[in-house]
Amino acid sequence: MLTKICKLARIAGRSIMKFYYTNKKINFVYKIDQSPITNADKISHQIIKSGLTDISPNIPILSEEDSKTYCKSWNIYWLVDPLDGTKEFLKKNGEFTVNISLIEYGKPVLGVIYAPFFNILYYAFNQQAWKIDEKGYKKEISVVHSKQPLFVISRSHLNSKLNIFLEKIKFYKLKELGSSLKFCYVADGQAQFYPRFGNTYIWDTAAGHAIVNAAGGSVKIYGTNIDLDYSLSTRKSLINPYFLVSS
């Protein structure tokens, strides 16, 4: 099944790149939360929804582009962000991804992240994480510690809380990065921390969470030792609390 999910993410990614490379202006509208949505988001959603239904017809799907049609009683479900980093997609800087994860009783047990512009695939299952680079080379990945850690931060969501957090740290390096690639950087040892002090939704984090966990890292609610949780039955909303991804 994991192989099929990886293939599905690549197919969705190829559909996104057709829009990315078009000479025509990409039309978009803003949703209620002021995040943009394009035709690329919608087409990717349809491809993934159809593919997952064929692969596992008995497992329900919660996607960012169809987020009102879920049941709190779902214990096992697919969680999908068809185009994570739509702002980066519109800026055409390449830092956007396709995210697919499988949730079982609040835990992300499978995660696939595909960055179509870079043609890099990250995936994890059963406490193992891998990366397939643009040349097709596959390797198992794990977190790496550093005395001068690299913090990856959101390119589009900088705020004062982040500045206060960083003021407490003496020696560090900083890199701005879009989408769930921040999780991937921690998972494969390129970075050590990803602090987030702003709104994210569960589809933004689940696939990256699975990959970081399998690579030996953690995704904790900020200031606690509690993992981000994806149980629909206990949630008041689909928005995550602030969190810290660590190697």
Rank of each mutant, 00 (worst) to 15 (best):
S101M: 08
L174Y: 01
P149C: 11
K87G: 08
K107M: 10
N163Q: 13
L158N: 11
K131D: 09
L110Y: 08
R155V: 08
L174A: 01
K147G: 06
R155T: 14
S101R: 04
I100P: 02
L158Q: 12
S146P: 03
K170E: 14
G136Q: 07
K135A: 12
F118R: 12
K161C: 05
A129N: 06
T97S: 08
D84F: 03
E95T: 04
N119Y: 05
F151D: 03
K175L: 14
V98E: 09
I153Y: 01
S160R: 12
S146T: 06
V144P: 00
F171K: 14
I169K: 12
L90Q: 06
Q127E: 15
F171N: 15
S154N: 12
E176P: 05
F125S: 15
H145I: 10
L174P: 01
Y105P: 01
E140R: 13
F125N: 15
F165N: 02
K107V: 13
I113Q: 05
N119A: 08
F117H: 13
F96Y: 02
L110W: 04
V98P: 05
F125E: 15
P149N: 10
N99M: 05
N99V: 07
I132F: 00
G106N: 05
Y105C: 10
L121G: 06
S179W: 07
K173M: 11
G85M: 00
S179A: 14
K161L: 09
K91E: 13
S142Q: 15
F118Q: 13
S154R: 07
N163R: 12
Y122I: 06
Q127I: 10
P82Y: 07
V144C: 06
H157R: 13
L83G: 02
S154Y: 10
K161W: 04
L162Q: 09
Y172L: 11
E88Q: 14
F117L: 11
I100H: 06
E167V: 03
Y114V: 01
F125D: 15
G178L: 01
I113F: 03
A124Y: 06
L158A: 08
N159I: 03
Y123N: 02
G111F: 03
Q148G: 10
I164V: 11
K139I: 12
E167C: 06
P116N: 13
F151T: 02
L166P: 03
E88G: 04
V109Q: 02
K92E: 13
H157S: 14
F125P: 06
Y123L: 01
A115H: 08
Q148E: 15
P149H: 10
E176K: 12
S160C: 10
K107W: 09
V98K: 04
V152P: 03
K161R: 11
S156R: 07
I113N: 06
S154M: 09
